[in-house]
Design a protein around this nucleic acid. Sequence first.
DNA 1: AAATAATCATAAGCTTGCTTACTATATCTT
DNA 2: AAGATATAGTAAGCAAGCTTATGATTATTT
Lengths: 164, 164
Amino acid sequence: MTLAKPAFPAPDHDHRRCTADALAHAEAVCEQRAQKFTPIRRQVLGALLSSHRPLGAYEVIDELAKSMARPAPITVYRALDFLMANGLVHRIESRNAYLACAAHDHDATSAVAFLICERCGLVGEISSASFAKDLNAAARSSGFAPKLSVVEITGVCAHCQKMS
Amino acid sequence: MTLAKPAFPAPDHDHRRCTADALAHAEAVCEQRAQKFTPIRRQVLGALLSSHRPLGAYEVIDELAKSMARPAPITVYRALDFLMANGLVHRIESRNAYLACAAHDHDATSAVAFLICERCGLVGEISSASFAKDLNAAARSSGFAPKLSVVEITGVCAHCQKMS
DNA sequence: AAATAATCATAAGCTTGCTTACTATATCTT
DNA sequence: AAGATATAGTAAGCAAGCTTATGATTATTT
């Protein structure tokens, strides 16, 4: 069992830096692929990066409205589509919400599992090659050819456990 | 790796019986818990059992409308809540849809993974103790206390693979 | 029989997620 | 400079998921 990262956003982490890193990473990815990291795209990613919580599309709109003219839904959806296509944003299916990708290293193909804290709402990513293998093996054993896996685990994060 | 069941609904399975079994099981569960298996609850479960596809709430309404006065959304939601609370129906988060539980044997706590065929739309359940263990272990290794896992795997079922 | 609790019906409405259609602007290519 | 392409803005709207509020029924308890 090999875990990629500490996974869950610690309450005392350097969020300033974490945001800056993510934006820098996004820039790098876009440049590398000759994709344009336009102002709205940057702003939408910025909105998502402002917390480690998944935001619904309308929450993103609200967030952006604080610093610019309220964007139309379509504008935000286009940006979200772009960011997802480039692996910079994940969609959390169980919430119909979007989350800035925190793991700047996982390849697009490997399965990612999300840890969603039901207390604070923060979400961590774990990308364990081992459970993905097991999962796919279990699926295949009944003749099923797996493509895309959604793994979302709700529970209580380490920090919130201490608080109780 | 121990699989509980063949998992995916075969195209030629005895659906008549499969429906009857599920209804009988629901009746038994409700009686055992002194819960009332009322007509609407039965009908909603029946609607879901009519296919092995997850149905949205409004699809359930449409289905029921065929054999009775069109029920209001609230009526269906109440029945769905009841059925889910008693483990007779699952919610497929990635589809905002509901599925009659096909595995009448898994305990409420054990993780269930859904196999969703993107061709025929049918959904199978696998309840593998082994991957659940791995999943939980991976989560716990970062101090996270997992409660509810959503595992939804999209792909192509054995039957649809043969058809291509 | 009366009171309590559970269930269901009726009616209305809100929110969110997402789309279609069209125009304008910027960027890149030739 | 002209045309093509990608991106974004404007305006409008739809559909689905779900809720609130209230009153009627039915069952259960006392």
